[in-house]
Design a protein around this nucleic acid. Structure first.
Length: 210
DNA sequence: ATCCCGAGGG
DNA sequence: CCCTCTGGAT
């Protein structure tokens, strides 16, 4: 994709959604971290449904440790992958409590050392909780970047490094959420809504799928 | 490459 | 029934 088209692409996404944010519900960095770990291979909606009652009382790692593994696992069962996620979240809470003073670290290495936290989750926390211009390449961004031709790549990491090069600086902070939302609601995995896509004329894929 | 895994949509 | 959902660890 030509540089001028990249700028136009983000201008349109910005016009459609001036202040994009995550759809996960949370009140502080710890709750965000927990919600993002839980969101792997799950919809934001199902995560919010499970965390709504939990986050009323659980606001810190100490709160979660006091709440207990058994009760937490039962409370997130509807999300799926619940055994692994419960184990990872509880272990993460313990590490935060014992090694980080109960706070969520703002460095990639420390975040990725937590169980259940990989590059994608660390990027979301760095971007959304700490305002860093990272781009977390999830299933949506990977798909949108390849389909449109904005930042093609064979792996999520390849797409991420490409995006960091081609996204104009003024759009870097919000690019993450724009691409996510576009992928979720328009450039869907199954039946992309190319007919109603505001990026159609910029896209290498859309012309063949209207 | 495979496992974890429930819920919702087509 | 099948596929997908803001993946990570083995």
């Amino acid at each position: 994709m030509k540089p001028a088209d990249r700028v136009e692409l983000f201008r349109r996404l910005q016009a459609a959604n001036p202040h994009p944010t995550t759809e996960l519900h949370y009140k502080n960095p710890f709750q965000l971290l927990v919600a993002v770990i839980l969101s792997a291979q799950a919809t934001d909606k199902s995560v919010n449904l499970a965390t709504a009652p939990l986050f009323k009382s659980i606001k810190t790692p100490a709160d979660l440790l006091a709440f207990g593994h058994e009760r937490f696992e039962a409370a997130i069962r509807t999300i799926g992958l619940y055994r692994t996620k419960a184990r990872n979240v509880m272990a993460t809470a313990r590490i935060l409590q014992e090694q980080h003073g109960g706070l969520v670290p703002d460095r990639r290495e420390a975040l990725e050392a937590l169980p259940g936290v990989g590059r994608k989750t660390a990027n979301v926390v760095l971007n959304t909780a700490f305002g860093q211009p990272t781009i977390a390449v999830d299933t949506h961004i990977f798909r949108v970047s390849n389909r449109t031709g904005l930042a093609p790549g064979k792996t999520p990491l390849a797409v991420e490094s490409r995006l960091l090069k081609v996204v104009p600086p003024e759009f870097r902070q919000d690019a993450h959420h724009w691409l996510i939302l576009h992928g979720r609601y328009v450039c869907r995995a199954r039946q992309p809504d190319c007919a109603n896509c505001i990026l159609l004329d910029l896209c290498s894929y859309g012309a063949k799928h209207v």
